[in-house]
Each structure stands twice: as C-alpha cells, then as structure tokens.
Simulated assay, not measured.
Amino acid sequence: MTREAAPVAPTQGLEPGRSVQRIPMWDTARFLAVTLVVIGHAIQRQTGASEHALALYTFIYAFHMPAFGVISGYFSSAATPTADRMKRTITDIVVPYIIMQTIWTVVQAVVEGGKQFNPTQPTWTLWFLLALGIFRLILPYLAQLRWPLFWAVVFSIGVGYFDNVDSTLSLSRAISLLPFFLVGWQVKQWGVFDRWYDAPRRTVVRVRIVAAAVFAAWAVSCAVWIPQFKEFDLHHWFFYDDSYSGLGEDAWWAGAVRLGLMLLAAVLTASFLLLVPRRRVWITRFGAATMYVYLLHTFVLYPIRESGVLAGEHSAWPYVLLMVVVACAVSLFLAQPFVRRGMRWLLEPKVDWLFRKEPVA
C-alpha cells in the first residue's frame, strides 16, 4: 500500500495541526477514536437512568483511551530528547494545558461557583494531556530496561494498591495506562503494522472477520450483562483513575481484575485498529485535527450536560441515539479546517518568547 508522505516530525495521539508523517490508517484511527471520546461524553449523563446508554458507554470505555495510548506510543521516540523535542513538549502539551485549565476554571467558577485555579488537578478531559507528557518523559528511561512492557504492566497493576496515588497531575491514570503507550511504541519497533499495510487482501479479510467477531462478542456482552456490569461498577474500572479500594475492591486479587480488563482492552484496541481502513477514506483528512476536537468538544457538550435535559425520559434509547448523532456531528464540525484556522491562536499559540536563544558556537 502506498503511504502518504510528508515531512517527519514527532507526533502524538492528539495530533496538532502541524506537518507530520501522514499515514492514512493512523489518521483515520485518530479521528474515529476521538469521535468515540465525544460520544462517551455526550451520553454520560444518560447512563444513570438508561441501561442502553450505560451499555454503549461501557462498550466504548473498555478501549477508547487505551487506543489513544497505543496511537500515541506508536508515534513516539525513545531516543535521547533533543532541544526541539523538549520545546515541542512544552508547546504541544504544557502551554495548551495551562490555557485550557485556566479557561475551564473560569467557566466552572461562573457556572458552578467556588472553583479555584489548581493546575495540579486537571479538569475533565485535560488529564490526557498531562498523561502524554509523562509518557513522553519516561519512555527513554523505560526503553533502557529489559522487557519494558512487562515493567509497565507491573507498574499499572501495582499502582492500584496505593490510595495516595490519585488524579493529581494525572499520575494514577498515566501509570495505569502506560502499558498501552508501551504497546504502541513496541509494535512500531517490531514493524507489525508495516507488514499489515502490505498484507494481501485475503489475509486482511480473514483478520477483519475475527476482529469484527471480537467487537460483536463484546457488544453482546454489554447488552446482555449490563445489570451485572452496573452492579460491579465496571465502567469506573475503565477510567483507570481510582485505587482498588476506591473502586470498592481492596482484596489482594484486585490487581488480577485490572490485568484481565487490560487484556480485554488490548484485544479490543487491536480489533479496532485492524478494522480501520488502510487506504484513505473521506474522514482520513480529519485525523490531523484530533487535538481540536478533543479540547473543544467539551465546550459544546457542557451546556447540554449541565442543563439537566439529559435525564428522565430523555434517557430513553431514542434520545441516546440522538446524542450519538449529535456527538458525531460535533466531532466532524470541530475537525473542519476553518475551526482549526480560527482556534489555532488559542490551542497552538506562538510562544517563541518562552525559549532562550540558542547560544552562538
């Protein structure tokens, strides 16, 4: 398969609108993944009264952030950070985080009252920006170890036993989701998807039948066993945020539950990526705008969520379906070029003044 070439630059799961190596499959995967994020946030308020909404929510949350972790890891480098890469971490992660955290602090203070600016406690979706920064910071160190993926899994399972590792600076989620980031980086080293791009059509069809069957099995499980999943509070396990005791399971074997859910997420994420078209499709061009969709969709959904309209009879399945349609429309709208042009000043501000000039040799 011919890949779309462009100048190479560091990339991440939430791709800013900069010049990067464009591979159609990954751009499509980015946009589909961020659309799943928007759908999940759109129907969240309906999950309390609707098992249909909760089933869909559980289906999505089992793999959508692990998928972002894999995508981020695939395009990350374990090489010694250069000055340019360190600056990109500041401009792509730190600066947007501070800007958006400030804006959300003001919005919530006005709407909800009593909100104080606290950059150590990310608001709503902003936790993933900090997690990305942590991933990129520690990858060069993990890459020096034997079996880095094994250690990432150990850290992820082990952190759940510590109540003092919480949402401060997204540390709990960053450590918990680290294995998926490492999987993405590792499969890039193994050249797994390089072989997938060029796999014969017969092989692709067979693999995708299996991947579709995996998705179908998980969808049926969510539909049939949602009362049991609700009783166990399963969807909260997929947040990768609370300790095991915070999730109501402080037994010694709680780590085995996380391991099982991580394996489920890995299988679903692999199935998701294998089902993504390898060639360009009509949504591929939106893959470079995922940062805009991710950071801006919350402003569109926030008034709807806070109005209380997504409750009672508005939690019935036709309204759940309506919110899915609304979420897809929001995702498509925010990925449009005119949105990126209009909001670049906010999400990708020019901050050259932050950096010192390179010393003259």
Rank of each mutant, 00 (worst) to 15 (best):
Q12F: 14
V165T: 06
R340I: 15
W317Y: 12
F286A: 11
V267L: 14
R305S: 14
F75E: 06
Q101S: 04
Q46R: 02
S76G: 03
G184C: 03
M343P: 01
V165P: 10
P337M: 13
A53M: 06
E51K: 07
K350S: 13
Q116G: 06
A316P: 01
F238A: 04
L334K: 05
I93L: 15
V326D: 09
D166K: 03
Q21D: 15
E231G: 02
V339G: 03
L137C: 08
H52Y: 14
T123G: 01
G133V: 03
R206M: 12
L332C: 13
D194R: 11
F193P: 02
A288K: 13
R285I: 13
I23W: 04
T80G: 04
V300T: 10
P148K: 02
H41Y: 07
F59Q: 11
L145H: 01
S243Y: 09
E51T: 11
I138S: 00
V70L: 08
E4N: 08
W253A: 09
T28I: 11
P81T: 01
G17S: 12
R206P: 03
I226N: 11
T102P: 01
K188P: 01
E313C: 03
Q21R: 15
P119G: 02
S307M: 02
W225P: 08
L139N: 00
W147T: 00
F232S: 05
